[in-house]
């Protein structure tokens, strides 16, 4: 009757596996059902999700954002470890939304409200009519944006650039009259020292105004599970500047 012992052992192992599976399923369900902005305050969910998040990040995100999440300014890939959020304010639900649907990704639910026009081209913007700027105006706006960084003393070029910024350049429409940007449409703050493209030099600012830009991020709704999507959002959320996994 020794075989009965083996069967009992196998049944015990199977029961343990099933119990573990049910528990795992239960935590997974709780992770998915929780209000995303409150997930980070639940240590059990954080513990469950962080490993999965790191693994998912490594496979789906690190190719562009880099293994240290610091991005690549040559390609306009944002640093995820600083305190600056281009889209939204860094809430977990906002990060999750980007992981799900991306940015200019082809998914209509992704972020795709505006792009930086190329003001030195005959047709600066594809979606609606924007007049090109003159070379002198591009130079002046460059000087004005630089002055926001360096608190330079007012000059004619700065004043002219400010006028273009607030009038025919339509820059204010996205970046705001105070140039502090708008996270609702992904318009960066031009007054801080964080640069998405380049290094904040006159050349890189001039190039951005002249050539425009429109970075993108793929949506993952068809390639990752919902648990992986929430887990990677939680992982990224925990890596932001001053952020901890348990912060809301």
């Amino acid at each position: 009757m020794r075989w009965l012992g083996w069967i009992a052992l196998a049944a015990s192992l199977a029961a343990a596996a099933v119990a573990s599976g049910i528990h795992e399923q239960s935590v997974r369900s709780r992770l998915l059902r929780a209000d995303p902005d409150l997930v980070a305050s639940d240590p059990q969910l954080v513990a469950y999700a962080m490993d999965m998040g790191a693994l998912t990040y490594s496979g789906a995100c690190s190719g562009c954002h880099g293994p240290a999440l610091t991005g690549d300014r040559r390609s306009g890939v944002p640093d995820l470890t600083d305190s600056e959020w281009l889209y939204g304010t860094g809430r977990l639900s906002e990060i999750e939304r980007i992981v799900l649907y991306g940015i200019r990704s082809g998914y209509s639910k992704g972020w795709n409200l505006a792009s930086m026009p190329a003001f030195a081209r005959a047709k600066p913007y594809a979606s609606y009519h924007v007049d090109p700027l003159k070379p002198g105006e591009v130079d002046d706006v460059t000087t004005f944006v630089l002055s926001l960084q360096n608190a330079a003393s007012p000059s004619d070029a700065v004043e002219r650039g400010k006028t273009v910024f607030l009038k025919n350049g339509l820059c204010f429409d996205c970046h705001g009259a105070d140039a502090r940007g708008d996270p609702a449409i992904g318009a960066p703050d031009l007054t801080d020292a964080v640069w998405l493209y380049g290094n904040g030099s006159a050349e890189s600012i001039h190039a951005a105004i002249a050539h425009g830009m429109a970075g993108s991020c793929p949506g993952n709704i068809d390639s990752l599970s919902f648990a992986e999507i929430r887990a990677v959002a939680l992982y990224v959320h925990s890596k932001r500047s001053g952020g901890r996994a348990h912060d809301p």
Partner: peptide
């Protein structure tokens, strides 16, 4: 529009 975007999604979003 949606299908056109979907066809090229990999190109637009890959580096």
């Amino acid at each position: 529009t949606a299908v056109t975007q979907q066809i090229t999604v990999g190109i637009v979003t890959s580096e």
